[in-house]
């Protein structure tokens, strides 16, 4: 579904991604692990087109590096950015509506669906998103991304700033979404233990390079990698 090869990206003169390769298959949950500054967020932004990038990113036959962010969303790639990126001044309801910006039919149907999946959001539909708790905002960010009916969901460190129990709940939700709709998920995370529990496959990113890859079970079992890169 997604094939990334030789992906590079820089902030000014500083090259953050040194040409990385990875794939996400249909219906897969793939996690990219790595410490702060490894280039995880940059990878996400390079895919979603919100920063300049080089190399190739093939999504279902489309070359994403040539497309603008709105075109990429229309193809079915939705990103939940780091720090959640909710529209803090807009109500929960408006946040979800704007998530469906690229669509015109069956929007209300989807709205009802995500309200029933996330009842907390339904309770707070008229509140400004900025007034929600961190966990609720993360739910909102995911529900908003789902409103675009993505085929691939990019999740940038959803666990950031959340209590472990809330992170667990969130990851359970992501797994459900993946199993119910067959939507592929690319997750980047610092929290290796939790992420490896829900992922099918994983890559380890270190200073802009992929240094290890394998099934989630393989990486969980590999003590050398765990000690060297995942700080366990």
């Amino acid at each position: 579904m997604l094939t990334v090869s030789g992906l590079t990206a820089s902030y000014g003169p500083v090259q953050v991604l040194q040409g990385i390769d990875f794939t996400v298959g249909d219906g897969e949950i793939v996690v990219i692990l790595g410490a702060n500054g490894a280039g995880k967020t940059t990878t996400m932004r390079a895919i979603s087109g919100t920063m300049p990038r080089g190399g190739t990113v093939d999504f279902a036959g489309h070359e994403l590096t040539k497309l603008s962010p709105d075109a990429i969303v229309r193809l079915g790639v939705a990103q939940v950015p780091q720090g959640r990126g909710t529209f803090s001044d807009l109500t929960v309801h408006d946040n979800l509506m704007v998530g469906a910006f690229t669509r015109s039919s069956k929007v209300t149907e989807d709205l009802d669906r995500w309200y029933s999946v996330f009842p907390r959001l339904a309770e707070r539909r008229e509140q400004k998103a900025g007034s929600l708790s961190g966990g609720e905002q993360q739910m909102l960010a995911i529900a908003r991304a789902m409103m675009s009916r993505p085929k691939l969901l990019l999740c940038d460190e959803p666990s950031l700033g959340l209590a472990p129990i809330i992170t667990q709940d969130l990851f359970a939700r992501i797994t459900e979404l993946n199993q119910e709709s067959g939507m592929a998920v690319l997750l980047v995370e610092q929290n290796a233990n939790l992420a490896l529990k829900i992922a099918h496959r994983a890559y380890v990113l270190d200073t802009g390079r992929i240094v290890a890859s394998g099934t989630a079970a393989e990486l969980q079992a590999d003590e050398t990698i765990q000690a060297a890169y995942l700080g366990v």
Partner: peptide, 14 residues
């Protein structure tokens, strides 16, 4: 309204 609030997120919703 979305653009007024957050341009980056606006791009991400298309």
């Amino acid at each position: 309204r979305a653009v007024a609030n957050n341009q980056d997120s606006s791009r991400l919703v298309g």
